[in-house]
Amino acid sequence: MKNKEGWDGKMRMEPKAVITNPEALEDSDYSDPDAPPVEEIEADEGTAAGFDCSGLSHWRVDRLTVVQTYWQTKMLMQRLCLRQNQISRINFPPNVAASLTELDLYDNLISHIKGLEEFHNLTSLDLSFNKIKHIKNVSHLKKLTEIFFVQNKISRIEGLEGLTAIKNLELGANKIREIENLETLTALEELWLGKNKIVEMKNLDTLSNLRIISIQSNRLTKITGLSALPKLEELYLSHNAVTDLSGLESNETLRVLDFSNNQVSHLEHLSSLKNLEELWGSNNQLASFEEVERELKDKEKLQTVYFEGNPLQLNGPAVYRNKVRLALPNIQQIDASKCFLPICVWQYAYTLFRKWR
């Protein structure tokens, strides 16, 4: 469920904020003697409107009333991060809910989505690594542009109707068997479905703005359902059971294609992909350098190819890289290694290769 840069839809870095009085987390009646009185704190544009409440991760917080105590109720928060705690219920003070635009509850104990009724300004919601089985009670969050449900127990895509502003939907590492109920998400640009149990790509026709689809580690045997996606730029299909690359003929805007760890034996059906920049085909059954040249030589934008783990590489590891360079003289990266010699050198070698072959 990762893209070529190794992330799964969101950079999940631990916040580095430091809590100066952690005793507030243990005592709901705690009052910082050095804090100014509540009435002296004004919510102006320079403080309250931009306040970032990101220092409560990994503090074993199990109740959300502490948020109201710790930050003095008149402070308006826009971003709240409560990762790696023991929260089982979403229950915020009304003033916190009204001002939040980003809510991160990654890695808690939430099993039911409740308590979001007042979060009308929310644009980002992360409920990854919880115990959620059903997507409910989020369709009223009309301003959401991204929502994350990584590593839950979701078996069906549902409850997202009305999220017409959503651009990024992350459902990786669940128990989903079918792509469904996405028809109204017409603004969607990124769909992350890695590590589920999906057997077919379908019901995507209305998602004409999709740029990225990640459906790695599923149960696909062929590429389908992509013909109505004119803006598709990145497709991640690794760790499935795909046997050929048919089904991509209409996706002329595709820049990145990852079909590594499948069962593809021929580089066919790629003739229309003139904008291809990266081709990831490691650990398949590709065996012909002549086919590599025939199918990819016209891809002027192609810079990176991954063929390790194929018969191409396994049958002659000592000459593998040189043969790829000769077949594709403009290539800049083969597998994890850059090509350091100037392009003109390889173009000359390529000319000799064609002459002597």
Rank of each mutant, 00 (worst) to 15 (best):
K143S: 04
G162K: 03
E234Y: 15
E23Y: 04
L160M: 13
L314D: 09
M13L: 13
E39C: 03
L302V: 01
Q333S: 10
A327D: 05
T206P: 13
N315W: 14
S57Y: 05
V61T: 09
A43Y: 00
L25K: 06
A165R: 10
E180F: 05
Q84C: 13
L267W: 00
I135C: 14
S124A: 08
R177Q: 13
I41W: 00
E118Y: 09
L267K: 00
A318Q: 15
N21Q: 06
K274Y: 05
F289V: 00
R294V: 01
V319H: 14
A287G: 01
G172D: 02
P94C: 03
I135K: 11
N121P: 06
K274F: 01
L82W: 03
E189Y: 04
E42F: 00
K202T: 15
R294T: 09
V305Y: 01
A336F: 08
E146A: 04
W59C: 10
E277K: 04
Q303P: 01
I223Q: 06
T69H: 12
S265R: 10
T184M: 07
N168W: 12
I113R: 11
L144A: 03
T221P: 01
E45V: 00
Q86D: 12
N168T: 14
L171P: 03
S99L: 07
N310D: 09
I198G: 06
P342M: 13
L270V: 09
A17S: 13
E293L: 08
D52Y: 05
D34P: 00
N322T: 15
L182G: 04
Q84W: 14
T351A: 06
D29S: 09
Q86V: 07
L182D: 02
N3C: 12
L328M: 09
L141M: 11
L109I: 00
V18T: 10
T351L: 12
L204F: 11
Q333R: 11
V199F: 09
K274A: 11
A349N: 09
K323E: 15
K231S: 15
K338R: 02
V67K: 07
A17F: 03
G162D: 10
S88T: 07
V138S: 09
P93E: 15
K323G: 11
F353C: 02
S214K: 10
I154A: 08
T164M: 05
S246K: 06
L64H: 02
E161S: 13
L193E: 05
M75G: 02
F289N: 01
V138P: 02
Q84H: 14
L122E: 12
E23G: 03
L286T: 00
S250D: 15
Y106C: 14
A327V: 08
H266F: 08
G194A: 07
E278H: 05
K167D: 05
R60C: 11
W280A: 01
D27V: 08
H266A: 02
R177Y: 05
I110R: 03
P93G: 12
A24D: 01
H58G: 14
S31V: 14
P342A: 12
P329H: 11
P22T: 04
R177I: 03
L182V: 12
G316R: 10
F289G: 01
L109E: 10
K195T: 12
D8S: 13
Q313E: 14
E178T: 02
N130E: 13
L341P: 00
A228F: 14
